[in-house]
């Protein structure tokens, strides 16, 4: 565990919008195969940082490598090596399960034969054979989220970014969803996740907490709780994020 490879390396990341500093000198590393929780209040600068790490926006300054690729010059390489899933949008409602999978496989440049083979495997694994031809808008939210996650890791990316992936799902489905996350991490996929569920912060190996553009704390949930002398991550969060 002590000598793990760094998969995301962020050094002095600064992002300004006019006079507003959204990311104020962020420095942190994420390890390969780690489940990394990226927390903070609304408006703390999480989305800005994630967009930079995904190659969707340029930083103002700083040295940032994602899976070894530079966020200034190698954005296309970054996009090919990551998966992304958000609560708000992740699947096309007017395509069925099988079509969604095929669509994303195509976008990530997988060959037709690989897509066909892996689609069958995935549908089998998720136990969705009976409804593979059902439109996404007609299946329950919990199942959608499972499919969305599987699609995000379908091309076996090095890193998957999950932006509030479990919002609104029932507790049992949420726990099943986390099992998918653990299994992906066990296969070596790095999981970078944001959430408003503070108990989910406990599910992560390490957690960073942002406030007003800065990272105020970064450690394992256990150490954070000990350092702040509290029993839950909720209390840690309230101590850090309330200013």
């Amino acid at each position: 565990m002590n000598q793990r490879k760094t998969i995301i390396s962020v050094n002095n990341l600064v992002k300004k919008f006019g006079g507003f500093v959204a990311n104020d000198n962020l420095t942190f590393d994420v390890h390969e195969g780690e489940i990394f929780g990226f927390l903070g209040a609304n408006g703390a600068g999480k989305t800005t940082a994630i967009r930079i790490l995904c190659g969707l926006s340029y930083p103002t300054s700083g040295k940032i490598l994602v899976s070894g690729f530079d966020v200034y010059t190698q954005r296309e390489e970054i996009k090919r090596n990551i998966g992304y899933m958000s609560q708000k949008f992740s699947l096309y409602e007017d395509l069925n399960i099988r079509e969604n999978i095929r669509f994303y496989g195509g976008i990530y440049g997988m060959s037709s034969s690989a897509i066909r083979r892996k689609t069958d495997e995935l549908i089998e694994e998720l136990d969705l054979s009976d409804i593979a031809g059902t439109l996404i808008r007609d299946i329950p939210l919990g199942w959608r989220q499972k499919v969305a996650f599987s699609v995000a890791v379908f091309h076996e990316p090095k890193i998957v970014f999950l932006d509030e992936p479990t919002g609104g799902v029932d507790p049992l489905t949420r726990r099943q969803f986390w099992e998918h996350i653990y299994r992906a991490a066990a296969r070596g996929i790095t999981v970078f996740i944001t959430t408003h569920y503070m108990d989910e912060a406990e599910y992560c190996e390490r957690v960073s907490i942002m406030a007003e553009g800065r990272i105020e704390a970064l450690d394992s949930p256990e150490n954070l709780k000990n350092n702040y002398g509290v029993k839950t991550m909720d209390e840690v969060f309230l101590k850090i994020a309330r200013k």
Partner: peptide, 10 residues
């Protein structure tokens, strides 16, 4: 409180 951070929720 959906989608609202833990501090604002409190």
């Amino acid at each position: 409180t959906t989608g609202v951070d833990a501090v604002s929720r409190k």
